[in-house]
């Protein structure tokens, strides 16, 4: 237990827990609305923001927030309003955002430190300032979901009925995408933009099998992602492996085991 006396380890545990809050809540919407690939697109497009951060010499996370928000709105509007197939919109933003990121980094003189950790995550190097930002974003996400819980439930479950009831379904959809964008920002430090999609989908997908409503699914998937990230963190410390990848593999293993058990026992 002496490893917890190190500040980097305390920060890593805090980051894992903060990430799990956002994962549990927003991942639940991602899974029930089946918008995993939109989320993947937002995450990858946001790489442009990391590049911009390097180029401007500011914290890459500060570049990430506007970029992921803009790509969320862009994918949402292009997919729903313009006559563009949603997967086309996702693909275009996905690649263009990454290309912008590469361009900005190549324009930045010298070496881009920590670039790898933004792509694949490094929970052991999360600075305290980032923890504060993660906590603030968590608070914002919890507040918005608390306020719009019944509206989000309605649009996720039955969009047509939500519209008949007079809800602005488009605005609510964009708001949900914006929350996904903020969740991406929180998760980047933990698993990196390439693997964000796994933490947004695996814990809620397992939780759904044991939940009767959205609220319990959110809580359970939050607990599961805490277990996965902390287990992954501990294993990566033990075996000196890449933390982001280890976390994802722990989650993927649990996902496989749960589905195998369900398949063998014949539960649906």
């Amino acid at each position: 237990m002496e490893i917890f006396s190190y500040e980097f380890m305390q920060n890593a545990v805090a980051a894992a827990l903060l990430a799990s809050v956002a994962c549990g809540i927003i991942g639940t919407y991602v899974v029930v609305k089946r918008i995993g690939f939109i989320s993947g697109g937002i995450a990858h497009a946001a790489f442009g923001g990391i590049g911009l951060g390097y180029y401007l010499g500011i914290s890459p996370l500060l570049g990430l927030i506007p970029f992921s928000l803009l790509s969320a709105l862009g994918i949402g509007l292009l997919g729903k309003k313009a006559k563009v197939a949603e997967d086309t919109a996702i693909g275009a933003f996905w690649a263009a955002g990454m290309a912008l990121g590469v361009l900005f980094i190549s324009l930045t003189p010298g070496y881009a430190p920590n670039l790898f950790s933004y792509l694949f995550g490094n929970i052991l190097t999360v600075p305290r300032t980032d923890l504060y930002m993660m906590a603030a974003l968590d608070a914002l996400i919890v507040a918005v979901v608390f306020a719009f819980y019944k509206e989000f439930l309605a649009v996720s479950f039955d969009e047509e009925y939500a519209e008949v009831s007079g809800l602005n379904t488009m605005a609510l959809y964009l708001l949900q995408l914006a929350l996904i964008a903020l969740t991406v920002v929180i998760l980047v430090r933990v698993v990196g933009i390439v693997m964000v999609i796994a933490l947004l989908t695996i814990p809620p997908a397992i939780a759904r099998k044991f939940s009767r409503n959205l609220r319990s699914m959110m809580v359970l998937s939050g607990v599961l992602s805490a277990i996965f990230t902390l287990t992954g963190l501990w294993l990566s410390y033990l075996f000196d492996t890449a933390s982001g990848a280890t976390i994802i593999l722990v989650a993927a293993l649990a996902f496989t085991v749960v589905h195998l058990v369900f398949a063998v026992t014949g539960r649906e």
């Binding site: 029930v32 089946r34 439930l153 996720s156 479950f157 039955d158 759904r208 939940s211 009767r212 409503n213 959205l214 319990s216 699914m217």
Partner: peptide, 9 residues
């Protein structure tokens, strides 16, 4: 047209 797995009562 809903997902039968959707967790809602």
């Amino acid at each position: 047209f809903f997902d039968r797995d959707f967790p809602v009562t």
